[in-house]
Design a binder for these strands. Structure first.
Lengths: 113, 113
DNA sequence: CCCGATAGCTTGCATTGCAAGGTAGCTGGC
DNA sequence: GCCAGCTACCTTGCAATGCAAGCTATCGGG
């Protein structure tokens, strides 16, 4: 519990990042740095490169995403990640689970007010 | 990623358990087993004793809760945990953070539909 | 006196966010 | 040519924490 609730925020991200990344990939294929940039626009979920790449590797290993190398017009090649069919199913399941948890927490917080 | 999304659910709990426990204690002092039972009524957040006691110990160490031993009419003594003033403030901060994250995730998920 | 239920706690493990650092391709200025 | 700076990918080591499993201790009933 290093710095009160900045540390806690990181724990909160932990449970949600995988869902957020799958959600972003559901729209269109993206590459690692692009995900970092996209998430940076949502301060609550912003993460560093050192978090994204291991996460993408885990998703790929689990078969939820596949990747394709593609040349960049302006820099080093990029590895685009696409949702697979199992990935899409998992995203749906996670979405439901998230909504359920979110609703439950809201209930607990309101019930004790 | 042991069993697909059962394992994920545990990661999702990770970020939210502390908030849920503080939320439950905001109503009235409770003891460990009682928290386990309370949370068991919310399947999404149900946890085991081996999770609650370390968590309570961390909260106590951080000064967010205090505990008092109290005799039980029917069994071994119970350790009742009460929210401290800093605990209450932390609960409020966490509640806001949770709402922000929840809203952001919802936005991401809807944006890609 | 033992047995089940209740209550608290500990140990060891696996997962995972993150800071820091490392490699390599591309571009523009010199 | 060559170097500085940017982009992009990846790895290493660490810390936090949920969880199964197991231990101790109290109480009451048979």
């Amino acid at each position: 519990m290093r710095t009160e609730h900045e540390a806690w925020a990181s724990q909160l991200r932990k449970g949600v990042l995988e869902l957020a990344v799958l959600g972003l990939l559901a729209g269109e294929p993206k590459y690692g740095s692009q995900l970092v940039d996209d998430l940076a626009t949502h301060p609550e979920l912003s993460i560093s490169a050192g978090t994204v790449y291991p996460l993408l590797a885990r998703l790929a290993k689990a078969g939820l995403v596949t990747s394709v190398w593609q040349e960049s017009p302006v820099g080093p090649p990029r590895k685009y990640y696409t949702l697979t069919e199992p990935g899409r199913r998992t995203l749906n399941a996670m979405t439901q689970a998230f909504r359920a948890v979110s609703a439950t927490v809201t209930t607990i917080l309101e019930g004790q007010r």
